[in-house]
């Protein structure tokens, strides 16, 4: 009744594997852009100037309160229309689906990561800076030797958790026609009239990568635990 060979060899398998690889690519590229953006937004939210703080807060709230699907629809259908003609034409000739998906994913993921980074930095008591300075360490030295090691230990686990969310969110790119894993699974389903095998393949792929990411988080927390006082 169930025929795993349907997806373990041949053209269907190739489609699914291509989809899986594209999902992984989307996640990796997004991560590269989202992390620096997240750090920037986190710093904005902690800036001394009120308008900067407000800007950071507005970014986070505006992005987080709108579903990722709506973001994708905007960046694929809406945003290109706002561009000047020559740029728009080049975009449509290129890989606009993937570009829109990456933009939407980057902005969305960065908003969540920024909050995790901010809470991580706020979790360190301000007296740690005082303690470092009173030992004679300069500002940068204190940041490097006292604050940053603690900040990393606190922030990395939630950031890994956001990476897990990112991995699952790549599935939404299906909506704008990106050929990632979900898209290919649906393609195989409509071509072969079998729903179980391609979806089982997709589910197991998502689970495996999720397991890897969760394992990474567990390893990190084991190796670099947050030590409380």
């Amino acid at each position: 009744m169930f025929d795993p060979s349907l997806v373990l060899s041949g053209p269907y398998r190739d489609l699914l594997v291509a989809g899986l690889l594209l999902s992984l690519e989307l996640a990796a590229i997004t991560l590269v852009f989202a992390l620096p953006l997240a750090i920037g937004v986190a710093l904005l939210r902690m800036a001394p100037a009120r308008p900067l703080r407000w800007l950071g807060a507005a970014y986070v709230e505006a992005i987080r309160n709108v579903p990722l699907l709506a973001h994708m629809l905007f960046w694929y259908f809406g945003a290109p229309e706002l561009l000047p003609e020559p740029l728009k034409r080049r975009l449509y000739e290129g890989n606009i689906e993937a570009i829109s998906a990456v933009i939407a994913l980057t902005l969305y993921t960065a908003a969540y990561m920024a909050e995790d980074i901010r809470s991580g930095m706020r979790a360190i008591p301000p007296v740690q800076m005082e303690a470092g300075r009173s030992l004679g360490l300069g500002f940068l030295a204190t940041v490097r030797l006292v604050l940053l090691p603690q900040a990393l230990r606190i922030t990395v686990p939630p950031l890994i958790s956001q990476t897990l969310n990112l991995w699952k969110n790549t599935s939404i790119a299906t909506v704008i026609g990106v050929g990632e894993l979900m898209y290919q699974a649906a393609q195989v389903e409509s071509a072969s009239f079998r729903s179980f095998e391609p979806f089982a393949f997709a589910t197991l792929s998502y689970l495996s990568v999720s397991l890897l990411i969760t394992g990474l988080a567990a390893w990190y927390q084991q190796r670099y635990p947050v030590r409380h006082f």
Binding site: A186, S195, T203, Y206, T214
Partner: peptide
């Protein structure tokens, strides 16, 4: 754990076809 490690879209498709 399994449900939380799966994208919602996957769960929707399982419901839709299953």
């Amino acid at each position: 754990f399994t449900v939380r490690a799966t994208p919602l879209l996957m769960v929707v498709f399982w419901a839709y076809f299953g």
